[in-house]
Amino acid sequence: MKHNKAQKFGMVIDLDKCTGCGSCMVACMSENNVPFRKDESDKFLSITWMRVYRLTNGKPFPNTDICYLPRPCMQCAGQHEGHSPCVSVCPAIATDYSTETGIVSQIYTRCFGCRYCMASCPYHARYFNWWDPIWPDGMEKYLSPNVSPRMRGVVEKCSFCFHRYQLAKEKAFMEGRRNIEENEYQTACTQACPAGAVTFGDLNNPDHAVYNLVKPDHKHSGRPTNPHAFRLLERLGTNPKVYYLSSRKWVRQVGDNYLKNEAKVKKPVHHG
């Protein structure tokens, strides 16, 4: 019954639990064959599908507080489902929104590298392959066979480990099932997080943990009803499927832009 409905995979990241260890970033890179160069010091050229930001509340000691914020692709649905900032602008349909899973795909062999999607994404979740990937000697044997490596000149981004979804679906099909269980499809970052800060599942399914953590209001573009939950740049209307949890007010306010008369909080400072 309800399981036959379209799924809407989403992620909930508890910022009170995140320690900023970076396991999610590492897991993501190795899971998805993300290329890297010898010198990765220029972060404007690094490919990090999952990127952890370090935020502070900007207050002097002893009131200083910090927070780590992991940022995967938000898998935006837009105001009417499918009108994601990036999907709507791609001239060659190289990125598409699946109404079955709610995942924004990136078709590497279709992308011709105009980078319009990167210009459209306010989260900087999209990365360009400025170079051809070069793996250290022998490392190509350790690449995941389930994820195609990307060539120079195309854009890539977090896919919510879509290949894992495909594998889970295949397995279910072989076993004569139509649907997959919550634990059958989990992203690499979710499983790698030692603090259990990342939760992943179907936002349409009330049995799933993500649903219960944020209680999305699907009548209002999936806005969270949990008062501790928020989404990044909610006001832009991108309608992301990544939610953040925090008991700290300043952290929740960092998630969006406010005019001076709307919220009297000091703008936080970003440190790399």
Partner: peptide, 26 residues
Amino acid sequence: IDIGQPLRGWFIFWHANVHSMLTEVA
């Protein structure tokens, strides 16, 4: 010159997304 995969430049015509402003431009 500006596109990452110049040999795929024709995709913008062949696989046109009619909702993209860039398609209209091309």
